[in-house]
């Protein structure tokens, strides 16, 4: 059976909220970063699905996906650099350990 738009949208929305859930509940910074990647990839699925099923003549969706992949890589690079520096200062990448500032 050929999957329709609804099935793909269901998967991408589920992926989005799994990512959001992971972002809020995980304690390890690298896992949090992975959750963000899930969110970004769910958006990619969304764009591709909308482009294929709803607007096959307007290729904005596909172009957007390419840019999202590139930006996600750039963001991950900076985030990992920051996490490495955080590890040097705190000897840990647990978000609970980084608690110098409160209220």
């Amino acid at each position: 059976m050929q999957p329709g738009l609804n099935q793909i949208l269901f998967i991408s929305t589920a992926l989005f909220f799994i990512g959001v859930y992971g972002f809020f509940t995980r304690r390890n910074l690298v896992t949090i970063l992975m959750s963000v990647e899930l969110v970004l990839n769910s958006v990619n699925l969304n764009f591709i699905a909308f482009n294929k099923y709803l607007w096959p003549n307007r290729l904005d969706g596909v172009f957007f996906t390419v840019f999202i992949i590139a930006i996600a890589a750039a963001e991950a690079a900076v985030a990992i650099a920051i996490i490495i520096n955080l590890y040097r200062n705190h000897q840990s990448i647990d978000v609970e350990k980084a608690e110098e500032m409160k209220y």
């Binding site: 989005f16 990512g19 959001v20 972002f23 910074l29 949090i32 970063l33 963000v36 969110v39 970004l40 769910s42 958006v43 969304n46 764009f47 909308f50 969706g61 957007f64 999202i68 930006i71 963001e75 900076v78 985030a79 920051i82 996490i83 520096n85 955080l86 040097r88 200062n89 705190h90 978000v95 980084a98 608690e99 110098e100 500032m101």
Partner: peptide, 23 residues
């Protein structure tokens, strides 16, 4: 470094939300 970590994570998350809205 703690400030930078909070900034990059919140901005990454908010750009994810923004992208979902754009899609």
């Amino acid at each position: 470094s703690e400030a930078a970590m909070k900034m990059i994570l919140s901005s990454a998350f908010s750009s994810g939300v923004l992208l979902f809205g754009i899609s």
